[in-house]
Amino acid sequence: MNKDQQWIRSLQNGHQEILGEIYLRYKRAFLDFAKRYPIETDEVLDIYQDSIIILYENIKQGKLNRLKSSIKTYLYAIGKYKIFAYLKAKPKDSEHLQTIEAVEEMTIFEINTAEEQLKRLQQAYRQLGPKCQEVLRLFYYQGKTIEDIKNTLSYESKDTVKSQKSRCLKQLKEIVRNNENR
């Protein structure tokens, strides 16, 4: 079970302190993300807090039991739609409308590009050997430390795990590049 699934289960079981952990973990990145939009920081904070509440309510209602993205991605999607709603509700002038249209076009492009990149990465990951898949899965997907991986996979030292992870990443990047050149 990955960290996001653990958080979801804990929140469903009434451990609300997890919500504070999620809030703090993604707050700074969300504020940085929101800088591209013409909104004051106080408004962005309100939107972020509303997004956290919606995330929590959706978890409690069981809507995230089969979450296909990360909690961070899901939270940002909520926040992005709340930002759009806020921008659309503001008094409109032609410059404001052009900004909203440009942001929406950019966002659609970013989403499509990110989805394409994720598909290429998943395809390349499946081409890796089982040892590399396991090391990368443990480190990136499950958030395990190098020490945890050393113990789980019975490596001799942390340096060996670091070297293996580095080789696997290099191999993954090479596969992605080769697949793009086809």
Rank of each mutant, 00 (worst) to 15 (best):
S70L: 13
A85I: 11
N181T: 08
Y140M: 13
K82S: 13
C168Y: 04
N181V: 06
N181K: 08
E17M: 07
V44K: 07
I83M: 14
Y155S: 05
Q127F: 02
K72C: 11
L136E: 13
Y76D: 00
Y140G: 11
E105F: 00
M1D: 01
E116S: 15
A89N: 01
L136M: 12
K35M: 05
A89P: 00
L138D: 09
L136K: 04
L75W: 08
K173N: 07
I108T: 03
S10M: 12
S69A: 05
Q122Y: 07
D159P: 01
E95P: 00
K63A: 06
Y141E: 15
S163I: 13
Q5E: 06
K150M: 12
R137L: 13
F30C: 05
I111L: 06
I59C: 02
N178I: 08
I100T: 02
I54S: 05
Y76W: 03
E105S: 03
L87N: 03
G143V: 03
I149R: 11
K80Q: 04
I22G: 01
V44F: 04
I108D: 03
I22Y: 01
I59M: 07
Q127M: 08
E110F: 11
K162M: 10
H96A: 13
I100D: 04
L19R: 11
N65Q: 02
R177G: 02
L172H: 09
T107Q: 05
G79C: 11
K150T: 12
I59P: 01
F84S: 02
K63N: 07
K165A: 14
Y140A: 11
R167M: 02
I111Y: 04
A85S: 13
G20Q: 14
T99M: 05
K92N: 10
S157Q: 08
D50M: 07
T152L: 08
I47Y: 06
F33A: 10
L11T: 03
A102R: 04
V44H: 06
L75G: 11
